[in-house]
Amino acid sequence: MRILRTVVQMIFLGGAVALLAKGLAGVVPANHNCEAYCPFGGIAALFPLVKYKAYTCRLTELNMSLMISALILTIATKKSFCGWICPLGTLHDWLRKLGSRIFGRAFYVPREADRWLVSLRYVVLVLVLGLTWTVWGGDLGFRAYDPFYIIFTWGGHGTLAFSVYIAIAVVAVALFVPFFWCRYLCPMGAVLDPFSRAGGLRIRRNTDSCTDCGKCDRACPHRIPISQVDEVTARDCTNCLECMVECPEKGALELSCYGK
């Protein structure tokens, strides 16, 4: 399962890196960068699309189509977009593993603070959309602060002198605090949250086989208390399947698809 996910992650990360390399080499048009494939662009495009019947800035129907696909994927498989597709999520996943190797542990934010901090991503979402549709006049001003765009365009059009420091900070923090950006700041994660709660493909715990050893809880990079529930409904579950891989009891954790 791990190999399967890693292969899928590598395909998408490889695609983003290939676009970056092509952009740097100047062999693709300037608008053909990672932004063209970003489903969050579909959210940013919504308001101008309804009001002015036109796309804003560099957004196109491809952003809309990919946004709709990402939402359907989330309704079907929870936040597997984050755990399997998003190149920034993959980067965080690998940095988390590297950090654990280097420091021998992860530095999680204390649970009480974490409970408050997770709401920050909704603030970021409201700010980004609000500013795009008002102050930035339809321009994608978030580019200057968005580590996905900054990293995978290597400081492309619309980034500012300090943008690179934001990307460096996000990468550095991800070594210590697993999924720092994804968990606390990512507006795309905030958009997916309600759809993820309804997600059909879930981890289910078989209480007859489970020995309550807690290995799944320790394996979950999103600190979901799997051993205390019958079914993982948490919005943050990315279906990374790490809990299933680490569970020593055969059949204690299974994937269920709409209860089957």
Partner: peptide, 28 residues
Amino acid sequence: KALIIPAAIAVLILVAFVTVNAYRVPTL
């Protein structure tokens, strides 16, 4: 059942690329 995830990803991305011209709206 884990295969559902990559299968869903592949199908939905394919659908996104196929339907991309269904609601062509101008940039300007």
